[in-house]
């Protein structure tokens, strides 16, 4: 009887240990997403004080097809220019209740390397003009900026080259 309990314990704990290491692995691989309102987000967007970094900021959502279509160009751009000081920020406008079920799996599947935020702020009429006075609120939308200078684009991009053209003048500053 004792042997059986011992064996049982042995196997159970071994099993648990195995499970633990798998969960640890998952935790490491899980993409980090900061859920923020606009006030919390704005210090991250193109701080004037940081003149060393060129920022490319993309507003997107997993349900927005043109956004999903253009994302690979942003990822390729980031891969090729991160060494030159390009920082890629991806701002998701997914509904907060879809953080775990849609956004995080999407980021993992697409190996997204950006700093990711979920902007949970319904007061869009207040913060849209703060992003750019000309923005109607349609996504995708993109900002390129460095040290207080910025350009805004309410459009979909169709190649990495198009993006390279946008960032070149900023990288060469």
């Amino acid at each position: 009887m004792k042997t059986i309990i011992f064996l049982l314990l042995f196997f159970t704990s071994g099993h648990l240990l195995g499970l633990d290491s798998i969960t640890d692995k998952l935790k490491i691989e899980e993409p980090e997403v900061k859920v923020v309102n606009f006030d919390q987000l704005s210090p991250y967007l193109c701080p004037d004080s940081d003149s060393e970094t060129t920022y490319i900021v993309n507003f997107f959502a997993t349900w927005c097809k043109p956004c999903v279509d253009e994302l690979p160009y942003f990822l390729e751009l980031h891969k090729n220019y991160r060494e030159e000081g390009l920082h890629f920020i991806l701002i998701s406008l997914d509904f907060p209740q879809h953080l775990e079920s849609r956004l995080k799996p999407f980021l993992t599947e697409n190996s997204v390397t950006a700093e990711v935020f979920l902007l949970d702020d319904p007061a869009a009429n207040d913060w849209i003009p703060k992003v750019d006075e000309s923005w109607s609120g349609a996504i995708p939308a993109t900002i390129v900026c460095r040290g207080g200078k910025s350009s805004f684009y309410e459009k979909t991009f169709h190649s990495t080259d198009e993006l390279i053209e946008l960032i070149q003048p900023y990288l060469n500053q």
Partner: peptide
């Protein structure tokens, strides 16, 4: 008042 407001929405889809 207000005369115009903004909100997040989906782009209008046109042939590229």
């Amino acid at each position: 008042d207000p005369l115009e407001t903004r909100a997040i929405g989906c782009t209008i889809k046109v042939q590229e």
